[in-house]
Design a protein around this nucleic acid. Structure first.
Lengths: 212, 212
DNA sequence: TTATTTCTACCTGTTTCCAGGTATTTCTTT
DNA sequence: AAAGAAATACCTGGAAACAGGTAGAAATAA
């Protein structure tokens, strides 16, 4: 009878999280933790010799990206359900994990009951998300709908200098341009970002990683 | 004899982490966990009535910022050692926590032994860091040496609205203030940040994590 | 209670930004 | 060679920001 229990593996480089997961899962009588791993390669090595029903996978491991590891797991063992574990819920990351075969996406602030519920959902073949992720995925987020503006070389250059606190005149000086030219570029920057002043522009530019 | 054991509290909104910390600390015979809290206010409430030697404090709680909570703890109970717990090690955050009275800064990928060692160091009055943090702090980065400005409540509020692209008039409207008052705040913000326009201010404010 | 900080509000003047254009010279891509 | 994109430069006028003050009320700390 003990053979039809669910086999579960934990892949997470945080000892705290490993211990925490173990403790939360001892309440689940039908789940057996068959292994705890701190790197992706360790787990892959294990998976080649042992069947695993569900793996709780931290997406930010030291050795490999969560995305790559997930794909590798599914290639090696398609029947293994991968539940991604993460601290942050960025839409793009959730989508990428699902594209690469993950069965669910859980935030680390999940409760013990919710965790067990999600594992069971995953075993039934359903996609499953922790509460907080559901919310974020259900309402398409504002700043990810509007496309990232395509800036020209000059515009990027000027954007950078604006972010450094330079005025139009300063920029004109350092780039040996007419202030009026700089104004023109500044104007098209504001247009492309769809904002009405530099404060907002710098904010979203950083958000979109257009400024270091 | 059991009375001179170290009293320790955990403040973290992640059940996994709470359980994990508890499990890692049962090996430490001289430490008693006197409470686990998921919000800052809960813990403050507890602290008002109970002595606590060490608190393991997650810096990203749902209700209050780690910085504010840390300051409040030290005000209420200066003898309590605050060990910040975090996922990421950004210099600016480490510095800010120390400025506000934290005794140490630990990453969540810390091992059980290291955790206990750090707690004991903290009890001896030493500043203590987990391995990874030490590294980052040992090589000073240039632009983070300048101290982080201490903003008032109002200033933070207005900074946020500026970052959202609001003009002085807009802000005055939403906060029901005179535009002249908002200008005054705006002026002191620029002074505190030591910049001459909002573009630069937003940039460093984000860098210093004063804006989400 | 006194001292200090914070929040509030005002005044004056200058600079910079923003919005609405137009237009010529490069590049680049087809 | 022609079309399109990018970079350059100009004009006008109004809006907003910035710099340099002063100052009283309210909250907090010493």
């Amino acid at each position: 009878m003990s053979d039809n229990k669910t086999t579960l593996a934990i892949v997470d480089d945080h000892p705290i999280v490993q211990e925490g997961l173990q403790k939360l899962l001892v309440n689940a009588a039908d789940i057996t933790i068959v292994g705890c791993f701190t790197t992706g390669t360790d787990f892959i090595h294990f998976l080649k010799k042992n069947p695993v029903n569900v793996v709780l996978l931290d997406i930010s491991l030291p050795d490999v990206s969560g995305i790559d590891l997930c794909r590798e797991i599914k290639k090696l063992s398609p029947d293994t359900s991968v539940l991604a574990l993460s601290n942050h819920s960025e839409r793009s990351m959730v989508l990428q994990m699902l594209q690469n075969g993950a069965t669910g996406y859980l935030l680390k602030n999940i409760s013990g009951e919710e965790l067990i519920a999600c594992i069971n959902e995953a075993l039934n073949g359903q996609l499953t998300f922790s509460h907080a992720v559901k919310e974020i995925m259900s309402r398409p987020s504002l700043n990810e709908l509007k496309d990232i503006p395509k800036l020209t070389k000059r515009e990027k250059e000027i954007l950078q200098l604006i972010a450094d606190g330079m005025t139009t005149a300063d920029i004109a000086g350092t780039l040996h341009l007419s202030p009026l030219t700089v104004e023109t570029h500044r104007k098209s920057l504001l247009q492309k970002f769809e904002v009405k002043n530099v404060a907002a522009m710098i904010r979203v530019a950083i958000e979109q990683k257009l400024i270091p």
